[in-house]
Write a protein that binds this DNA or RNA. Structure first.
Lengths: 193, 193
DNA sequence: TCTGTAATTGAACGATCGCTCAACTATTGT
DNA sequence: ACAATAGTTGAGCGATCGTTCAATTACAGA
């Protein structure tokens, strides 16, 4: 062994993630990442290899938080469907909030760089699939419990819910009125009835 | 008068639009715009003032085509609701197609630069509002004709349809299977019944 | 207390960024 | 034919981009 690292990896990833989330991948320069993380360029490159490497690590960090948040929302509710409803209503509220313009790092990544970078594309698609699996599981459980009507298709509904999240994220980027985001969230949730 | 311009403005805007659409705003350099348009830097700056000016003009060009396309889809159908249904089903097909990864220039712009550029934000929001107005008009007509149930809220539905378009555009960026995009489009259209 | 190893530092690299401008060319009105 | 005017050209500006690296510093094991 030798000299140990002087930074906490998770601290650095959190700060880098915020920078990429705020500004987007291309608009976030190494100089601004140096500012945000308080690391020197050499340290960043020693730890993450490249700007892309740091971004991928920050993306994983983001996805981990997203998955945890959705798991919590589903687990805290009385029933699976109520968990889903609660999550989308809070997403609707969030989409009208102050920080809504940042959208979601995964969605931003799909549209900004996924197309030109196969590695990023596979990573972000995997994270999105993980999230969809949470909803699919909740929907299947709801159907088994009789909470969701038997004629509904959980797979199709899960795909629809993911698409709805993405739509709400873009909606948040248009500086919408709270009533507007709430109305959209309510509309889409009627598909669960 | 003096020497007339040697390029067609619409040709240049079409080519610039394609470049921005393919690569995103930040990833599209002036050098690549020079390549795409076959103009020299000086001519671009004389005609559009800046990269941002060219982008705004290209954005207007894109929006004009989008509005025209939706108007046509609505006008060609037998009824307003059939027009909407047809448009979303074709969007679903498109989202699984080869060029789906480019998403939509307006959506890309909301997420990539709208937040950091107020002028761009206002412009893209205006274009999106124009599109929403087309759907709102079709929904109101449908309700007046009895095609849409009287208890439906056309404004809320129009907002939902816009959000659905955005979701489908992101979906297209995830390289989805055709069956997946079709299922999502069908799901969201059931809200019109 | 040394020695080996790994992390830190910050100046600086070549490449590319958005953009400018003086020289040049083509077209107009007289 | 001749100014006057406006579009075209492309070399090249200063700034910033992502990245590298030799020198330095701090800690673990013997």
């Amino acid at each position: 062994m030798a000299r140990p690292a002087q930074f906490e990896r998770d601290d650095v990833l959190e700060k880098a993630m915020q920078a990429f989330w705020d500004q987007g991948y291309n608009a976030t320069s190494m100089a601004s990442l140096v500012d945000a993380t308080s690391l020197k360029p050499g340290s960043i490159y020693a730890a993450f290899g490249s700007k892309e490497g740091l971004f991928l690590a920050a993306l994983d960090h983001y996805a981990q938080q997203s998955v945890a948040r959705i798991k919590r929302a589903l687990a805290d509710a009385d029933t699976p469907l109520q968990g889903i409803r609660g999550f989308f209503l809070s997403m609707g509220r969030e989409a009208a909030g102050e920080h809504a313009g940042r959208s979601c790092l995964l969605v931003n990544t799909v549209l900004e760089i996924s197309r030109q970078n196969e590695m990023v594309q596979k990573r972000v698609n995997r994270h999105l699939a993980d999230i969809e699996a949470l909803f699919l599981h909740a929907l299947k459980t709801a159907q088994a419990n009789g909470e969701l009507l038997p004629d509904k298709d959980p797979k199709a509904l899960a795909a629809f819910l993911m698409t709805s999240i993405w739509g709400l994220r873009v909606l948040g980027g248009t500086k919408p009125a709270p009533a507007r985001t709430k109305a959209v969230a309510k509309q889409l949730l009627t598909l669960l009835d």
